[in-house]
Design a protein around this nucleic acid. Structure first.
Lengths: 107, 107
DNA sequence: AATCTTAATCGTAATATTGCAATATTATAA
DNA sequence: TTATAATATTGCAATATTACGATTAAGATT
């Protein structure tokens, strides 16, 4: 085993889990925070900002791209990384759906 | 390697990542949803609700406990699982901090 | 063309996760 | 005490993740 049995769960559950998983690494949180911080989305200095080797960061970016959270387009010499608002908003909506249900306390 | 270098990141980044990671599996999303659905938080039927073997679910519950999202207290014969509102609210606060920064578009 | 820069990919080692059968634990019921 | 139930733990196999050195790819600069 070792592989998640995605077939057993709903699309929505898998979608939330997929994005949560992508956010489940401090380096990827740092990348997202950095992308939100810089004015332009043209940022060739993520590698200089984070304390990890270039291939490692490239791999983290790939995972953020795979789940759809960020988009990357070539912009001449640099690369333009952007957060995909649609995906993040959808995720936020799902999450707040869960959060609001919390209003009724239990224990 | 293969181990996350948590030392290189801030406590906040690690905290967000830790909870996100715990939510990064559809079974654990299903567990959270179920805990939110049932009125009482005493639920000895998670095993019957989810299409996974009992040891597997027990392990997922353990991970949700480890990151602090849920608490489990012995309640006679059954066990009372509750979502820890403090932890989830803190997480929500962190996340909405990130989400609100999204208001300024880029691309 | 030769070189520099930047980011992606390959290959691989170390470690973590997922899932379950078997077993153990714990508390109630008979 | 013995059985019954519900959950936890152990051990293990299959797979995934993390990290990085080496290399490659592609555009810019000289």
């Amino acid at each position: 085993m070792g592989a998640t049995k995605t077939i057993l769960f709903t699309d929505k559950q898998n979608e939330i889990a997929s994005i949560s998983k992508a956010l489940g690494h401090p380096a990827r949180i740092a990348i997202i925070e950095y992308l939100l911080k810089v004015d332009s989305c043209i940022c060739g200095d993520i590698v200089n900002e984070l304390p990890l080797a270039q291939p490692t960061i490239s791999q983290h970016l790939k995972e953020l791209k795979n789940c759809g959270l960020i988009k990357g387009t070539i912009e001449g010499t640099a690369i333009c990384y952007c957060i995909d608002e649609k995906v993040l908003n959808k995720f936020q909506k799902h999450m707040s759906e869960i959060f609001t249900k919390l209003m009724k306390k239990c224990c």
